[in-house]
Design a binder for these strands. Sequence first.
DNA 1: AATTCTTTGCGTAATATATACGCTAAGTGA
DNA 2: TCACTTAGCGTATATATTACGCAAAGAATT
Lengths: 257, 257
Amino acid sequence: MIRSEKGPINDMIQVSRELNPNISVDCVVFGLRRNSLKVILVERSFEVLDGEGEKVSDYKLPGSLVYNDELLDQAAQRVMRELTGLVNIRLERYDILDSLERVHKHLDKIWLESTSGLEINRVVSVAFFGLVNLESDNKYVIDKSARWMDLEETKHLPFDHSEIIQRALLAVQESIRTGDLIFRVLPEKFTIAQLQRAAEVICGVKLDSRNFRKKLKKINFILPLEEKQIKVAHKPARLFGFDQKKYMESKRKKNLF
Amino acid sequence: MIRSEKGPINDMIQVSRELNPNISVDCVVFGLRRNSLKVILVERSFEVLDGEGEKVSDYKLPGSLVYNDELLDQAAQRVMRELTGLVNIRLERYDILDSLERVHKHLDKIWLESTSGLEINRVVSVAFFGLVNLESDNKYVIDKSARWMDLEETKHLPFDHSEIIQRALLAVQESIRTGDLIFRVLPEKFTIAQLQRAAEVICGVKLDSRNFRKKLKKINFILPLEEKQIKVAHKPARLFGFDQKKYMESKRKKNLF
DNA sequence: AATTCTTTGCGTAATATATACGCTAAGTGA
DNA sequence: TCACTTAGCGTATATATTACGCAAAGAATT
C-alpha cells in the first residue's frame, strides 16, 4: 500500500512499547528571527504503491501518536527530539483537536496507518506550542528532514495543520502578554530593546521605546543588573535579568472586575 | 467481579456504538445560589463481588468514555443528559488530564471496567466546566442519582475529581473576568445589582456597587433598556441586556504590552 | 398622608496608570 | 573632535481607578 522513503515515525517505534491509536500530539514551535517568525515543519515523503505509484513529498507539523505509558508532555518532547533533533524545548498545551474529519484526506490516512502500523479510526490530538530564538547562541540546528518555514508558506498543509498553526500563534501572542514566554527567547541577560523587539515581532506591533521602558521598570520580576553592553556603536544599554521566583509570586494576584 | 446496582453508565451503552477505551470527558457544572456555589455530582453505587462483597456508595463527577463517532462536546452533553437529566448546558473545555495514575485506586479501576465492559489501560480525560443559575425560573431539577453538592463536600472524591473541580473553579473565575460566562447565569434582562452579586459569589469578592455601576456603563455590549423593575420594596432598578454581537466585536481587540 | 427603609444611581475628589513626545547622555567609528 | 545612534530621563496631558458622599424612588409601615 505504501512505502515510506525515510518515514521519520518508522524509526521511532521501539520494541515493547505500544502506540495508542487514538491519542496524538502535534507541536507548533515558532522560531524568532530579527524581523520574522518561523515555524518548524518536517518532511513527509512517501510513495503510494497501489495504482500509479504516486509520489508524495510535502511538509507537516512534527507530531506522533502517543505511547500508552507516556505522558502527553513526554510525547511532545519525544516528537521534537526524534523528528527535528531539538531537545528541551519548552512546550505548552493550548488546544485539543477532536473533529471526526481530521484525517479525511485519503493520503493522510494511509500515511498514518503505514507509519504507525496500526489501523486508524479516530485520533484526538493535543496541540502544543513553543517559542525559541533563532538569533541566539544556541543555533537550534535541526535535522535535514525538518525546516524552519515562513508562516506564509504554511497555508496548505496536510491534516488540519494550517489551522493548528493559526491558533498556536494566537496562543503565543496571548502568552507573551500575560506570561513568561518572552523570557525564553531572550538571553539570560538582556536589554530592554531586545525585549521590545521580540514583543514587536511576535505580536506584530510597533511600540514606543520610552514608554515601554517606563512600563518595564515597574515590573518587579525584571531586575536591573550592574552590567552594561560593550562594543556597541552607541550608548551601551543596561542589562536586565528575569527573576523566576518573583514572577511566580506576582502571578497569583488577579484583578477581578 | 462487580455488580452495579444502578450503574448509570450501563444504561447508556447503545447497540452498534463503540466506546473508545482511551478517551473520556468529565463535566464540572457549577450551580449559583444566592450566597454559595454548588457543583453537580452523581452517585456511584456498586458492590464488589470478590472477597467480602464490599459495598461502595459515593459521589463522583459526571463523566464517561467517548464514543468513537462522537465529538468531545457531544460526549459532554450526553454525559449531562444521561447522568443528571440536564440538557443544553453550555460547557467549555478547560483542561486535559493525562496522568498515568489517574485510575490508581483499585476500586476505581474495576468500577470503570465493569461499567464500560472494556479493559482499561490508559484514559486521557478532557475536562469541561459549566455554570447555571439555580435561583432562576429554570429550576435545573436533576435526576435522583445526581446531587448539587457544596464545594466543601468535594474534597475527597474518587479518581482525580477533587483536583479537577479546583481547577475548574479557577477557570470559571477567569472566564467571568474576561468572557460572557456571567451572562449565562443572568436572566435575559437583568439589573446591575444582579450582575454584581453573581460576580461576587463566583469570584468570592466584595465590590463597591457605585464603582461597579460606573465600570459597567462603559462596557458597550451591556445595553440599558427602557424597562424598570416593579413591585420591589426600594427604588426600582433599570434593566440591562447583553448584546452578543457587540460582545463578539469587542473580543477581538487585545491590549498588547 | 407622613415617615421609614432600602437600594438605585449620580457626583466629586484623590490617586494611579497610560500615551505622546522633547531632550540629554554615552558610547563607537570616521 | 565630530557625527551618529541608541539609551534613558523628564514632562504634560488624557484616561482609569478607588473611596465615599448623598439625593431620589418606590414599597411598606405607622
